[in-house]
C-alpha cells in the first residue's frame, strides 16, 4: 500500500513534468501565432525540405570524381578505392591514354550506391584526390536498383 503510494507520487510528478512542457510550449506557440515573436521557439523541430540543417564540412555525401584542368578525370585507376571498399561497391576498368604523363584513365568507373555504406575509405585511400564525397548531396533516391549504380558520367558531373 505504501509502495503504491510512493508510486502514486511519482505518477503525479511525471504528469507535472509533461504538463509543464505542454503549457510552456503551448504558450510560445500561441505567442508566435499571435505575432509576438520571441526568441525561443516552441519546438526544436527543423522543417526539413524548406529548412535545411547546415552540413558539416567533413560530412560524407554523394561521391564525385574530380577533373584535371583539361576536363579529363583525375582518376588514374590505381584501384585503391576498389581495394579498400568494405562493401565492394566500386568497379573500375582502365584504358591506356596516349599521353605518357597520364597513361592510365578510367574507361569505366561505377559506384553502386545501393551497396555503398558511405564510410569514406575510398576518399581517404585515393592518392590523386580524384574522388571526393563533398557534394553535399544527401537526397538521392531511385525507383530501381540499377539507377542507383552511378557511372563515370554521373559521378564526374
Amino acid at each position: 500500500m505504501i509502495k503504491a503510494l510512493g508510486y502514486f507520487i511519482e505518477i503525479i510528478k511525471g504528469s507535472i513534468i509533461t504538463t509543464r512542457h505542454f503549457v510552456v510550449n503551448m504558450h510560445f506557440h500561441i505567442l508566435k501565432v499571435l505575432g509576438f515573436k520571441t526568441k525561443r521557439k516552441g519546438a526544436v523541430t527543423i522543417q526539413y525540405p524548406e529548412q535545411k540543417r547546415e552540413i558539416a564540412s567533413r560530412h560524407r555525401s554523394l561521391h564525385r570524381l574530380m577533373k584535371r584542368a583539361d576536363g579529363k578525370p583525375r582518376c588514374v585507376v590505381c584501384m585503391l578505392c576498389v581495394t579498400v571498399c568494405p562493401s565492394e561497391c566500386i568497379y573500375v576498368e582502365a584504358a591506356e591514354d596516349p599521353d605518357p604523363e597520364i597513361q592510365k584513365y578510367p574507361s569505366i568507373f561505377i559506384i553502386d550506391l545501393s551497396r555503398c555504406c558511405f564510410c569514406g575509405f575510398c576518399v581517404e585511400a585515393c592518392p590523386e584526390d580524384a574522388l571526393r564525397m563533398d557534394t553535399g548531396k544527401i537526397e538521392f533516391a531511385e525507383y530501381s536498383r540499377e539507377d542507383m549504380v552511378y557511372n563515370l558520367e554521373k559521378l564526374i558531373e
Binding site: M79, V82, T83, E96, K104
Partner: peptide, 9 residues
Amino acid sequence: FRFKTRNWF
C-alpha cells in the same frame, strides 16, 4: 597484363 587489374587482387 598492363592496366588489366592490380596484382593484389
